[in-house]
């Protein structure tokens, strides 16, 4: 699930909502005689409208074109609902003439998760690289109820994020850390 889908849904629902509101509102205005009392008694499909395509063979093909466009946009909208904006590979190529460098996102995220799990109080860690409004990493960290939030944050920001940025070769790589305090009472990992 992606945040891009949420943005697209809001935009499309706003457009459709406004169109329906305008259509319904104009129809009501017509029915109460806002455009002339006589027009309220006109049939919904007037003679002029129903005979408009007669003698215009292009009309229905233009309608087909518009309908196909709507179908394609609806399909894309439908696919947006199930498509995640996670990235599986990171292109680290600096100069294509010297060759291409690709980093598997899972190699990076596994390393990040392992390092985060090494911090006292962290019971679970999940990392992903997303591609929405530019690349960024999302690190979700579950904390034991007894965890020192300040200490965990410091180590995550100073160590884990620093190493992640070293890995991608970008000292300003954007990172979002989602902390889940009190997610579990006892750490899943223990030192033997």
């Amino acid at each position: 699930m992606s945040s891009r889908a949420n943005v697209i849904n809001r935009v499309v629902l706003t457009v459709l909502g406004l169109l329906l509101l305008a259509a319904g509102g104009l129809g009501f205005a017509l029915s109460v005689g806002a455009f002339g009392a006589s027009r309220a008694t006109y049939p919904v499909l007037s003679q002029e409208v129903s005979t408009f395509p007669d003698g215009r063979p292009w009309f229905w093909w233009a309608v087909v074109g518009v309908l196909l466009l709507i179908a394609v946009l609806a399909l894309l909208w439908l696919l947006t609902q199930v498509k995640a904006d996670r990235t599986t590979r990171l292109d680290l190529t600096t100069n294509a003439r010297d060759g291409y460098t690709t980093l598997h996102a899972t190699a990076l995220t596994n390393a990040v998760e392992d390092e985060a799990l090494g911090i006292a109080g962290v019971t679970s860690a999940t990392a992903n690289v997303h591609e929405h409004r530019g690349r960024h990493a999302l690190l979700r960290v579950e904390l034991a109820d007894s965890a020192d939030m300040g200490e965990v944050r410091t180590r995550l920001e100073d160590e884990v994020v620093a190493h992640l940025r070293e890995g991608v070769g970008d000292p300003h790589f954007p990172v979002t850390i989602e902390l889940r305090p009190g997610a579990s009472r006892t750490p899943q990992r223990s030192i033997i």
Partner: peptide, 24 residues
């Protein structure tokens, strides 16, 4: 056969307005 001021047409238009508001 139905004109703009028919109650059933108004009911459909009302439905469109409600649906539009729900989407918003």
């Amino acid at each position: 056969t139905h004109s703009w001021n028919d109650w059933i047409v108004n009911a459909v238009l009302g439905g469109l307005v409600v649906l539009g508001l729900l989407f918003l």
